[in-house]
Simulated scan of single mutants.
Amino acid sequence: MAIMDGTEQDPFTEHRRLLFATAYRMLGSVADAEDIVQDAWLAWHKEDRTEVRHPKAYLVRTVTNLALNRLTSAQATRVSYVGPWLPEPLLTAPDVADAGETAEDVSFALLVVLETLTPVERAVFVLREAFGFSHGEIAGFLERPEPTIRQIARRAREHVQARHTRFDTDKARREQVTARFMSACAGGDLNAVMELLAPEVTAWSDGGGKVTAAIRPLHGAVSVARWLLGVMAKPEMATATVATATVNGELSILCLMGGAPIGALTFDIDDSGLLCNLRFQVNPDKLGGLTN
């Protein structure tokens, strides 16, 4: 039985960060994650909390199931989405490890791969791999037999490992490559930009039909560099500025207009120091997580 004596912190407040992190990783959407947390808060305050023996488990179960319902409906609507669908970027602390997380746990690249899992696989993967819940605990959250959860967890982990290439670029090197890339783009030098892109580079651009964006992935250094410089040469970009920021645990690039973000570029750097995966999020409806 959970009893508060008036001096203890409300369990919802205590675990709010965990609840948002769970919902965000499951949905890839800052706005939807915030909605889920709010719905969980309402459920928590309607509950007879004298009957809740394990508040953390109750809250995580509530958020997980709310997110599952939202994710199932969201995947159906993404079939008609205009162009590539990318998750919403999220500003994070420069060293997310200080918050009990790792950059890998919240990386944009991993969120993209999680989109290829089924809703239940994604829930199990997030709860197990990101937050370390036991198979038994997850079985309780999802009301499924523990052996079934173990099978789902193994299948999801193998699926992610087969599709998610991890690049171990140290902080200093990433800063250097990012600075060189920004300088080359600002100078409008096609060759200089191409020299920093891997030959097999791919770029995705999510405008959601709201702003101009490439409706198909771009492949190859020539195509990506030309498209990128073409965007930067547009008249409306004359007053835009670029700056670095830690997005989803990694140094990234923001494009700002009047101090407000109008786009975010996240990317991977391969073992040769070249950019190999570029993800441009410019859908104005998906930039809320870039403001403090």
Score class of each variant (00 low, 15 high):
Met4Asn: 08
Asp10Lys: 05
Pro11Gly: 04
Glu14Phe: 08
Leu18Arg: 09
Phe20Ala: 07
Ala21Val: 03
Ala31Val: 03
Glu34Ile: 01
Val37Asn: 06
Ala40Phe: 04
Ala43Glu: 11
Trp44Leu: 10
His54Trp: 03
Lys56Asp: 01
Tyr58Ser: 05
Tyr58Ala: 07
Arg61Met: 11
Thr62Gln: 12
Thr62Pro: 05
Val63Ala: 01
Arg70Ala: 12
Leu71Ser: 03
Leu71Thr: 05
Ala74Ser: 14
Thr77Ile: 10
Val79Asn: 08
Tyr81His: 15
Tyr81Ala: 14
Pro87Val: 09
Pro87His: 07
Leu90Val: 12
Leu91His: 02
Thr92Asp: 06
Asp98Thr: 09
Gly100Cys: 10
Glu101Val: 07
Thr102Phe: 02
Glu104Tyr: 09
Leu111Tyr: 01
Val112Pro: 02
Leu114Tyr: 06
Pro119Asn: 08
Ala123Ser: 11
Ala123Asp: 07
Phe125Glu: 00
Leu127Gln: 14
Arg128Leu: 00
Gly136Phe: 05
Gly136Val: 05
Glu137Gly: 07
Glu137His: 10
Gly140Ile: 04
Phe141Lys: 08
Glu146Met: 11
Ile149Asn: 03
Arg154Ser: 14
Ala156Phe: 00
Arg157Phe: 09
Glu158His: 06
Ala162Asp: 15
His164Ala: 05
Thr165Cys: 09
Arg166His: 12
Phe167Asn: 10
Asp170Asn: 15
Asp170Val: 11
Arg174Ile: 09
Arg180His: 09
Met182Lys: 08
Cys185Gln: 07
Asn191Glu: 15
Met194Lys: 15
Val201Gly: 00
Val201His: 00
Thr202Gln: 13
Thr202Met: 13
Gly207Val: 08
Gly208Ile: 11
Pro217Lys: 07
Gly220Phe: 03
Ala221Ser: 14
Val222Glu: 14
Arg226Tyr: 01
Leu228Arg: 01
Val231Leu: 08
Pro235Ala: 09
Ala238Tyr: 00
Val242Ile: 13
Ala243Met: 10
Thr244Gln: 14
Ala245Gly: 05
Ala245Lys: 03
Gly249Ser: 03
Glu250Ser: 15
Ile253Ser: 01
Leu254Ile: 00
Met257Trp: 07
Gly259Lys: 05
Gly259Asp: 04
Gly263Ser: 11
Gly263Asn: 04
Gly263Cys: 11
Leu265Phe: 02
Thr266Met: 13
Thr266Ser: 04
Phe267Gln: 03
Asp271Leu: 06
Asp271Glu: 15
Leu278Ile: 06
Arg279Glu: 05
Asn283Glu: 05
Leu287Cys: 06
